[in-house]
Structures are given as structure tokens and as C-alpha cells.
């Protein structure tokens, strides 16, 4: 079995914890509760006949006044960069989070989640130009969450 550490990165209140909770427990609660520090959850996966244990680091969201402790980045093989598709400022923060990740590990892989897609109209979704490995997710209705994590897992094992 292979163990890999992945990070959930993104601004506060973009839904990182909700994505993890949906992926691990298949539950959702729309009450916002701030994450502080880090909570590590485990998920077993079989990727291309390889047994993989993902150690998912749900990290507190970054705010202008509170940066993510650098120790959290050490040893990470990859990250899910999460933004709230309905909040432009969090989408603009994606680039910085990718930069933070790669500053610690140039080889780290990442995928991007435009979360809370359930809040977007069909027209708004159409106008989004999403690059490869970017997913329109919703922790509320569960859309594209499994593929988000498995895509990252495959990238890491490449």
C-alpha cells in the first residue's frame, strides 16, 4: 500500500471541509464552521490496481491576516486547490495557492475545484473557461467530487 499526503488549499469559506466530508462520509451541512489548524482524514483508493491511502489534509482557509503554516506543506504530494465559483476574489486567489504549493514541492500535482457550482446558473457555468484538471464541484449535490480526488490520485501515481 502506498500512502500519499494531499492538501486542501483555498481561501476561507470556499467549502474545503465540505468537499472532504462529502468524499469521506457522503454528508453535507450548509452551516459554515471555520476550520482551524488541520484535520487529517484517510481514504483508501484503488488506482490502476495500486492500493493507495490518501491522507487528506483539510487545512484552515487562508485569510489576508492569517497565512497557512508552512509546516503543513512539507511532504505533500499534491493538492486540491478550492475556490468558491460564486466569489470572484477566491477564484483570483487560485494562482497564489498554486504558487505556495509549488514553492515547497516543485513536483507536487494539483487539481482545481470551482466549488459551490450549485449556486451558478447554467449560463454562468457556460461562460467559465475551465482548464484541464479543473472541475465544477458541489459539496451540496456531490457533483464531480469523486473524479476530483481520483484525478489527483492518478496524477500523483504517474
Amino acid at each position: 500500500m502506498i500512502r500519499k499526503k494531499i492538501l486542501m488549499l483555498g481561501d476561507f469559506a470556499v467549502g474545503k471541509t465540505s468537499l472532504v466530508r462529502h468524499y469521506i462520509d457522503n454528508t453535507f451541512d450548509d452551516v459554515y464552521l471555520t476550520t482551524i489548524g488541520v484535520k487529517v482524514s484517510k481514504k483508501m483508493l484503488a488506482v490502476n490496481h495500486v492500493e493507495l491511502e490518501l491522507l487528506i489534509w483539510d487545512i484552515e482557509g487562508e485569510t489576508p491576516s492569517k497565512k497557512i503554516p508552512k509546516a503543513y506543506f512539507k511532504g505533500a504530494s499534491g493538492a486540491i486547490i478550492v475556490c468558491d465559483a460564486s466569489r470572484k476574489e477566491t477564484v483570483e486567489g487560485i494562482r497564489e495557492h498554486i504558487g505556495d504549493l509549488l514553492a515547497f514541492n516543485r513536483e507536487a500535482k494539483y487539481v482545481i475545484a470551482y466549488n459551490k457550482s450549485d449556486l451558478l446558473s447554467a449560463q454562468q457555468k457556460e461562460t467559465l473557461s475551465l482548464s484541464e484538471n479543473t472541475f465544477l464541484t458541489s459539496a451540496k449535490d456531490g457533483s464531480q467530487i469523486d473524479i476530483l480526488f481520483t484525478t489527483l490520485a492518478k496524477e500523483i501515481l504517474l
Partner: peptide, 16 residues
Amino acid sequence: TRAQQNLLQYSNESTL
């Protein structure tokens, strides 16, 4: 940490 979390929750909700 719980005390910090309460403060952070308040701060984040205010920012939102």
C-alpha cells in the same frame, strides 16, 4: 484553539 476558532469564525463571517 477553540477560543481562537470562535474569533476566527466571527472574523470570517464578518468578512463574508
